[in-house]
Design a protein around this nucleic acid. Structure first.
Length: 885
DNA sequence: CGATCCCGCCACATT
DNA sequence: AATGTGGCGGGATCG
């Protein structure tokens, strides 16, 4: 039979082999030999077959040799076909037909037919997902290879990944034991925990103060990081069966990489990880330098891993569109929560919740960011060179010991990112237009948004959706919202900032924020320096998470409905898309925003200047700070997001979007304020947190909790990214800090300043807000706009609330105020994508916090989805808050 | 042209 | 030394 086929095919390329033979199908096969068969070699190509029928192909493909062996062994049954097992006939004839007919065309299977993903599917098809405990299935690599008609090498690729997830374990030399997915969730849980620890912790570190960091850093680093490096993967528990014995060998990078890759997804709030980010994160060494080649290689491996994971149904390919273009990314579609089983020691569960945003966030800049980013990525990587000056420097300095290196790397990455951001910022600043305030904001929004960077879009979206939102307050919304009166002020333009907005930024390395309108940016720039310093350590840590890049995604459009052009719509669409899932996230962003109103406001002029970025970072130390930041972010994000999300989710339709858009526009118009601020991105992406806050203050928006923090009000907030370490700063316009140039006084509100740092104190974060944010409660004054009520946040639109789960509310964040909002997002959709984000998980914790604030209820909702635990952070916050109070 | 990623050389590990 | 493993990256394909 085979021969038969062969003959047909024979003709050409003998070359490799493609073994496969149909015959086997029968399945018989007796034993498998451990031996390796040989390659099959020459298998010409079979011809035709439909791609689909991979199996067929395979089979057909098989070389005679293979067959023989196979026969001996047994053949497998092809997956799909498999059943048929026997019937070679069918195959053959099939082949025949094909050959006759199509032969030419089909000829070879086409690359796809030979893809690792397909091969993996076939492989998986051979074994039950949930094998009976009783049956222990052993897998002979040789056998499988021959059956599937591929080289053994390819099987290793598959098995290594499966092994990393404990679906199989190596028993002996050519033997693997098939476990199936019984333990998958546990494994994932373990990975999640590990991921959080590893990446998360790092992040956490950052949160702490620098000092602490440092020392901790060292320690922790070792601890955590190490594993990554040194340790082979985590092995989870069981070594399982067999011998994993020895594991010695180097840790196989593929296995480790696979686990790390999975961890990134599990830790990511959005569950979306872009390849480049993952690659950066996974590249330990070389931080700075990192060759391009290295990066490329890493990406290749990631594709290998991704193909297997895709076959397992754990991830799927998506595209994140950034400004510049779309980037390949993968979205986790596997289980997110892992209840029980595992025990994680860690206690908290990381899980799901992750963060809300985080990551990347934001970056607003579309272009800018993108640009920067790109550079970073590419060039930077390759070259070493620095993409950014700042970055480089940092980087360069950092490297030191190996361990450190790692850190360094991260740091460097982070740094780079930061640099990029800065640049962006600067640019933004420069260009007001671009910058527009909004842009950044978007970030806040949820993940999805995140994804997209475009801020504007975001806003619009939000508004659109919810006009009603109460959120308005939310900062997040802020921009959008009309509610804020302040905004209005400007109206258009101008800026912004308005009184409210306060602004600020902090620089941390990582983060940036911008404010919209307003002022300038100086600040930010300045900051960096500082930041740099501080950052390092932080950065390093931060780095871990992918934060790095954070890329934001931009949006491109895409959306269907989209009208793309409009920005808004686009944005919305994007969002919607997200939900859908597949769709690429693209975001569209409008670059220009929408325009309108917002834009105007910001417009360049005002805005630009206005915006400053601030950065700060919080320090790690104080927990509070971070939290605050987080909260802030959350809030903003949340608000937006939540609204968006829900809506989106609910409506995915473009149409709606459109309408929404309109609203938005209007709103925007109304609110001019928005612009306020923005965002931040951390460089790190994941890691850090960054954030931003809103600029505006809408009063309501921020408010946060007012309660608690009175001071805070803040409009903004930021958080430090991991990287950041320290910087703190912030200014509010009002306050004016020195830093900021904030000139304007617009803000005035000065009040804002309050931040109470005290409470927070520690850390960081701070924020500042200008105006006052409202703190509702707390603050005494409401600064500027009083109108806003406070709480806005709380309310989120119902919808949102739901979706979000209300999260927000509670959030403690106080600092920010809005915390409320923030929270949220997370869960509801897990989907959101964030491309870059990585770290999210941690965030969640932060968010959670609940304790503090308040509403339990909200929390609960959230909880439902995920678990949240109060992370330490949260606790801290709480504490802090209390203290503050 | 960038995204994918097949293919298989070759080094290192194990037998 | 033979064979098992698997890092790695050239370069072909795909979209």
């Amino acid at each position: 039979e085979n021969i038969f086929d062969r003959s047909r095919m024979a003709p050409k390329t003998p070359i490799k082999n493609e073994p496969v033979d149909l015959s086997k199908q029968k399945g018989c096969t007796p034993e498998r030999n451990p031996i390796t068969p040989v390659k099959l070699v020459d298998r010409p190509q079979p011809d035709p077959w439909t791609p689909t029928a991979n199996l067929k192909m395979l089979v057909s493909a098989a070389s005679p040799d293979m067959r023989d062996r196979e026969k001996k062994k047994e053949l497998f049954r092809p997956i799909e076909n498999s059943e048929q097992s026997d019937t070679p006939d069918s195959l053959q004839y099939v082949m025949v037909d094909d050959s006759t007919v199509d032969e030419f065309e089909k000829q070879r299977p086409s690359r796809k037919q030979k893809s690792l993903g397909l091969l993996c599917q076939k492989f998986l098809a051979r074994y039950p997902s949930y094998p009976l405990s009783t049956e222990k299935t052993t897998i002979s690599l040789d056998e499988v290879a021959s059956i599937l008609g591929v080289e053994r090498r390819r099987i290793y690729d598959i098995v290594n990944v499966l092994e990393s997830l404990h679906l199989v374990s190596r028993v002996a030399k050519n033997q693997y034991c098939w476990h199936g997915r019984h333990n998958l969730s546990q494994t994932l849980k373990t990975l999640q925990e590990a991921g959080e620890l590893q990446y998360g912790e790092v992040m956490t570190f950052f949160q702490h103060k620098e000092q602490d960091l440092e020392y901790k850093f060292g320690e922790r680093k070792k601890e955590t990081i190490p594993d990554s490096q040194n340790r082979p993967l985590l092995d989870f528990s069981e070594p399982d069966c067999t011998s994993a014995s020895a594991n010695s060998r180097k840790d196989k990078s593929l296995r480790i990489m696979s686990q790390k890759f999975v961890m990134l997804f599990l830790v990511s709030k959005t569950k979306i990880v872009t390849l480049d980010i993952a690659a950066k994160i996974l590249i330990e060494e070389t931080q700075d330098t990192v060759d391009h080649s290295k990066f490329k290689t890493k990406v290749r491996r990631l594709y290998d891993i991704a193909n297997v994971l895709t076959s397992l149904g754990l991830i799927k390919k998506v595209h994140v569109t950034e400004e510049r273009g779309r980037k390949p990314a993968f979205k986790w579609i596997g289980p997110v929560e892992f209840p029980g089983k595992t025990g994680n020691p860690t206690g908290h569960s990381p899980t799901s919740n992750p963060l809300p945003r985080t990551q990347r966030g934001a970056c607003a800049p579309y272009q800018i960011c993108a640009t920067g980013k790109q550079r970073f990525t590419r060039h930077a990587s390759f070259n070493n060179a620095q993409p950014c000056e700042g970055t480089k420097r940092k980087v360069s300095s950092e490297p030191s010991s190996p361990r450190q290196e790692r850190q360094d790397e991260y740091c460097s990455k982070m740094i780079s990112l930061a640099a990029v951001c800065r640049q962006k910022i600067e640019e933004d600043t420069s260009n007001p237009s671009i910058t527009s305030p909004l842009s950044h904001l978007p970030v806040l929004g949820d993940s999805d948004f995140y994804v997209n960077p475009l801020p504007q879009a975001v806003f619009p979206v939000v508004q659109a959706d919810v006009p009603s939102l109460s959120l308005p307050n939310g900062i997040s919304s802020h921009a959008l919202h009309p509610s804020t009166p302040a905004a209005s002020k400007t109206e258009n333009g101008k800026p912004t900032l308005l009184p409210n907005q306060p602004f600020l930024c902090f620089p941390s390395s990582s983060l940036f924020m911008l404010c919209s309108g307003l002022q300038e940016n100086n600040v930010s720039e300045t900051l960096p320096t500082t930041a740099d310093v501080g950052n390092r350590s932080a950065e390093a840590q931060a780095a871990v998470p992918p934060a790095a890049c954070q890329k934001r995604n931009s949006r491109k459009c895409a959306s269907p409905s989209a009208p793309a052009d409009d920005e808004e719509p686009a944005a919305k669409k994007q969002i919607m898309e997200h939900d859908h899932g597949d769709v690429p996230l693209s975001l569209v962003v409008p670059k220009k925003p929408f325009e309108s109103p917002k834009a105007e406001s910001t417009p360049g002029s005002g805005c630009t200047s206005a915006a400053h970025l601030e950065v700060f970072h919080l320090d790690l130390t104080s927990p509070a700070a971070p939290e605050a930041a987080d909260n802030a972010d959350k809030e903003s994000t949340k608000s937006l997001n939540s609204q968006k999300q829900e809506k989106w989710s609910q409506n995915k339709d473009p149409d709606e979007a459109s309408s929404g858009k309109e609203h938005i526009s209007k709103e925007n118009a109304n609110q001019p304020f928005l612009p306020q601020y923005l965002y931040v991105q951390p460089t790190a992406g994941l890691s850090s947190f960054n954030f931003l806050v809103s600029g505006n203050q809408a009063p309501g928006a921020i408010n946060l909790t007012a309660s608690q923090l009175p001071s805070l009000s803040i409009p903004c907030v930021v958080v430090p990214s991991a990287a950041l370490a320290s910087f703190p700063l912030v200014c509010s316009p009002t306050i004016t800090s020195p830093l900021s140039p904030v000139p304007d006084g617009s803000f005035s509100a000065a009040t804002s300043m309050n931040f109470s740092m005290s409470g927070l104190a520690s850390t960081t974060p701070v924020f500042i807000g200008t105006t006052a944010v409202v703190t509702p409660k707390v603050s005494p004054t409401p600064p500027v706009d009083p109108q806003q009520p406070a709480h806005p946040a709380l309310h989120l639109s119902p919808v949102l609330a739901r979706s979000c789960g209300a999260v927000k509310l509670d959030s403690p964040v106080q600092c920010m105020g809005h915390p409320v909002t923030l929270l949220k997002l997370q869960q509801p959709s897990s989907t959101p994508l964030t491309p870059k984000s990585i770290r999210p998980a941690r965030h969640e914790a932060f968010f959670k916090t609940p304790g503090s604030l308040g509403d339990p209820v909200a929390w609960k909702k959230n909880e439902g989805n995920q678990t949240r635990n109060g992370s330490s952070v949260q606790r801290r916050l709480e504490i802090s808050s209390t203290s503050t109070d």
